[in-house]
């Protein structure tokens, strides 16, 4: 599904060029549940951003189902981003001025989904995550775990094939974290490809591959 060849990213400061990613090769198949692990600053988030088409500032080749993303025009790239990817953050990043319902609705608006279809998708998601009663609350009225559930609901509302999660449980306590990982597992079982970056080794157990990173490179690629 996704092939990365010799991906490199560096930042030049005044006196030197330092690499964040160096010669990363990677193959992601449909249905994978991949966990990226490694200490802070190793390049996990950067790699996720590149895969999620949020960062175009890199060298190397990126193919998405045979299409060369690195040569793609901005317009096509954002189209691809919109249709294929969902994103989940450690800090949830919900929009404070919008209710739970409206937060989940946002990606659908940008996809020009019509009103009745929107309603049914959101109703289904609210139901699935047991949040029907909370649909009119604002993010600050929810607990961290609930906010992250909204984050997930928002990420999958547009029915992406690939879900990218950057430390999705980093701000949560273990019970909530476990709940979130169960949701991921379910999503993966129903066909969504998931790539997560995490510090927590136990989270990797939910996936089928564990990629350990070190100094901007892939250190180990373990099939679980």
């Amino acid at each position: 599904m996704i092939t990365l060849k010799n991906i490199e990213k560096s930042i030049s400061s005044k006196y030197q060029r330092s690499f964040i990613l160096k010669g990363v090769d990677m193959e992601i198949h449909e249905g994978d549940f991949i966990t990226l692990m490694g200490p802070s600053g190793v390049g996990k988030s950067t790699l996720l951003n590149i895969i999620g088409l949020l960062d175009q500032d890199y060298e190397g080749e990126y193919f998405f189902e045979e299409k060369a993303v690195h040569d793609m025009k901005e317009k096509n790239r954002s189209k691809l981003h919109k249709s294929e990817f969902g994103y989940i953050f450690q800090a949830y990043h919900l929009i404070d001025e919008l209710t739970v319902y409206e937060n989940i609705e946002t990606p659908l608006l940008y996809r020009n989904t019509n009103s009745s279809e929107r309603k049914s998708i959101i109703a289904e998601l609210l139901d699935r995550f047991n949040m029907v009663a909370k649909k009119d609350l604002f993010p600050e009225q929810l607990s961290g775990g609930q906010q992250q559930l909204v984050g997930i609901a928002r990420a999958i509302a547009g029915r992406p094939r690939i879900l990218l999660a950057d430390e999705p449980t980093g701000n949560l306590h273990s019970v909530q974290a476990k709940e979130i990982m169960e949701v991921f597992k379910e999503l993966n079982e129903s066909g969504t490809t998931i790539i997560q970056a995490t510090h927590a080794r136990e989270n990797a157990n939910y996936g089928n591959r564990l990629i350990e990173m070190s100094d901007g490179k892939i250190f180990q690629n373990i099939q679980l």
């Binding site: 990043h93 929009i95 940008y110 996809r111 990420a155 547009g158």
Partner: peptide
């Protein structure tokens, strides 16, 4: 600062610049 975050989130969920 606050608005920038919102811009980021919206872009991630699929907003285009002109929107």
């Amino acid at each position: 600062q606050k608005r920038a975050k919102e811009v980021g989130v919206r872009k991630v969920v699929g907003a285009e610049k002109n929107e």
